[in-house]
Structures are given as C-alpha cells and as structure tokens.
C-alpha cells in the first residue's frame, strides 16, 4: 500500500454537518481492512478535532495521510487560537457557549480524547492567527 492523501474542508457554521470528514475517513480505513482499534482511534481523534474547529474556530481544513505505518491528521484553522494550551488540555476545561453545550458539547473532553487516542500529538497555536493540531496514529 502506498501513501494515500485526502483533503477536507470543514465549514464554520455548519456543525450539523460536522463529523462528515471523520465518517468518510473511518469508512475508507474500514474498507482498506485497517485494524478496528486503529479505525476507532482515528475516528475519535479526528472527530473531536473536527468539532473543535467548528465550535471554537471558524472551520478550517484537514489533511489526512494514510501510509502502511501511520495515519497522520493535520487540522488547521484560522480561529482565535488557544491562550493556554495546558489549561485547554485539562479534562473538564471548556469555553463552549451555552448554545453549543445544549447540543451535548462542552464536556471539556475533546482535547484529552485526542491526546489519549493518538500516539503523537502536537498543537501549534497563535492568538488571533489560528491553531494547527497534528496527530499521528500508528497503523499497526
């Protein structure tokens, strides 16, 4: 298997559609016969990142690279950035609005899930510029 690359645009307002990119990648990995545990890790990590781009930033783009060794997810947004990454990484910390909470988001578990289910994770962020989250999941 050579390296496959996929690109997704995630719309800012449309969080009724958020999750579609993750669903699509999950479907592709399943079809490729990827290990179910790896598929699960990718689905969780990517979904949380995708939703964060919609509810905390103004949407963005996701690049997915699937190689025999790794699945690499790069989620890039031009949102407000994260002021304090350590705080944002804490379980339960959330700045989600009341409106977004009423939909079931805002437990403050998204970033901790991304950290837990990816094998490597890096957050680059600048206030007023945006955030790029890179996650690598080993394709065992």
């Amino acid at each position: 298997m050579s390296t496959l690359k996929f690109h997704y645009k995630v719309d800012k307002t449309d969080f009724t559609r958020a999750g579609e990119a993750s669903s699509d990648v999950k479907g592709k990995l399943k079809k490729m016969g990827c290990d179910p545990e790896v598929v699960r890790k990718v689905a969780i990590a990517m979904y949380e990142g995708e939703i964060n781009m919609v509810i905390h930033a103004d949407g963005g783009v996701i690049d997915v690279e699937i190689s025999p060794e790794d699945i690499t997810l790069v989620l890039k947004d031009k949102g407000p950035g994260i002021a304090d990454i350590d705080k944002a990484m804490q379980e339960g910390y959330s700045t989600a609005s009341e409106n977004v909470r009423s939909l079931g988001f805002g437990a403050g578990m998204g970033l901790p899930n991304m950290k837990k289910y990816s094998d490597e994770m890096k957050i680059e962020t600048e206030l007023g510029v945006g955030t790029t989250v890179t996650m690598v999941i080993h394709n065992t």
Binding site: I44, E48, I51, G104, A107, M109
Partner: peptide, 9 residues
C-alpha cells in the same frame, strides 16, 4: 451518557 465527547470515548 449525554455528553458527546464522553460518549465518543
């Protein structure tokens, strides 16, 4: 569970 990111995990 009602919290989506908890249910996700």
């Amino acid at each position: 569970c009602d919290l989506l990111s908890v249910a996700m995990s």
